[in-house]
């Protein structure tokens, strides 16, 4: 297993775990949401990494962005890009709804910290 060949995958997993940690260790709802965003982007990184083509030992036609151009025949895979474009748009939609819910929670409980919300529920 060579370092350059797998560095992207490793980074993607470390970022994923950083997001996961924020979601489970932080009591603040906004911080949890930031963690979810980091986790999502890490999954995107995993997909886009797989789409890249770079031919070893070549000078010009070694794999380029998937837009047709005279003189190029090797393109990176366009399908992960399509999938992740959709995922980014869905992710910003869910983030917006989650933030709206958090703002309402702040009004109802006076706090966005999990501990204080549970305490107020117990009262």
């Amino acid at each position: 297993m060579d370092v350059i060949g797998h560095y992207n995958y490793w980074v993607s997993i470390v970022l994923m775990m950083a997001g996961f940690y924020m979601v489970i260790a932080s009591a603040n709802l906004v911080k949890k949401l930031v963690g979810l965003n980091v986790f999502q982007t890490a999954v995107f990184l995993l997909y886009i990494t797989m789409s890249k083509v770079s031919v070893p030992d070549c000078a010009i036609d070694c794999g380029t962005a998937p837009i047709f151009k005279e003189g190029f025949t090797v393109y990176s895979n366009p399908l992960p890009s399509v999938l992740i474009l959709t995922a980014i748009v869905v992710s910003v939609s869910t983030t917006a709804v989650a933030l709206a819910i958090i703002v309402r929670i702040k009004e109802a409980y006076g706090s966005v910290e999990e501990d204080e919300m549970l305490r107020r529920d117990g009262e």
Binding site: I48, S81, T95
Partner: peptide
Amino acid sequence: LDAVDVAFTEAAVGAGITTFLL
């Protein structure tokens, strides 16, 4: 990584709109 369409969507939506909303 050659995903140019994803790059400008991320710059506009991820760095722009999401930051603003947060």
